[in-house]
């Protein structure tokens, strides 16, 4: 739900302000890759209606955001292309290699799924780099990134709960480790987010 909230915040910003200033297209494209490689089981592994609908929402909203940033006349002009310089392959290639080395089963779907877990953990990096270069971070963008970080942190709590409370729950070290790293990457952002919130000041990251 927090993940869904983050997407709503981002779409709200882009749609109402007709601006994507401070939003990293690189992170959005990495997330698109994460969802495509993870949800290849969309039609073969039915978990629940909720699960299926959420998968479709995550996939379509990410592509919608990318379309907005690349294709929409006004939104496109507000994109900080010169600042959003992170290279995709810096993250994609190491994650692919890691997925080929560390996975639970050597099948195409499983390796791609593992790759998506690793890539998700680091997909925020281009966004954090851009954020550091952005002088005026608007509230919606700040809250968007906060929710994006918070959902993985909440997963950590959920994993602990499931581990102790569910009979048929199996340890999933790859997901747990990646989730911990993903949350740790946000630690610095969370610190400044709460600091600015407490002081009632505009969010600003130190250079």
């Amino acid at each position: 739900m927090t993940h869904l909230a983050s997407i709503c915040l981002l779409l709200l910003k882009i749609h109402t302000m007709k601006s994507c200033a401070g939003v990293s297209l690189k992170t959005q494209e990495l997330y698109a890759l994460v969802f495509v490689t993870r949800y290849l089981d969309l039609f073969s592994n039915f978990v629940s209606m909720y699960n299926t609908i959420m998968k479709i929402i995550f996939l379509s909203s990410t592509f919608g955001i990318i379309w907005y940033m690349r294709g929409h006349k006004l939104v496109r002009q507000s994109y900080d292309k010169e600042q959003d310089t992170f290279r995709h392959y810096f993250l994609v290639i190491p994650c692919m290699v890691l997925a080929l080395v560390i996975h639970s089963k050597f099948t195409l779907l499983e390796v791609l799924w593992t790759f998506s877990i690793y890539l998700e953990a680091v997909a925020i990096l281009p966004q954090l780099v851009l954020l550091q270069r952005t002088r005026n971070i608007d509230n919606l963008t700040g809250n968007y990134i906060f929710c994006l970080g918070a959902y993985r942190a909440l997963y950590l709590l959920n994993w602990i709960y499931r581990y102790f409370m569910e009979k048929n729950y199996h340890a999933q070290w790859i997901t747990w480790m990646a989730g911990m790293i993903q949350t740790a990457i946000y630690a610095d952002f969370f610190y400044y987010y709460f600091k600015s919130w407490k002081k009632n000041e505009r969010l600003k990251l130190p250079a």
């Binding site: 089981d41 978990v47 699960n51 089963k105 340890a171």
Partner: peptide, 10 residues
């Protein structure tokens, strides 16, 4: 061998 976790998360 550790049992594989069911893929029920998003």
């Amino acid at each position: 061998v550790a049992k594989e976790a069911e893929k029920d998360e998003l």
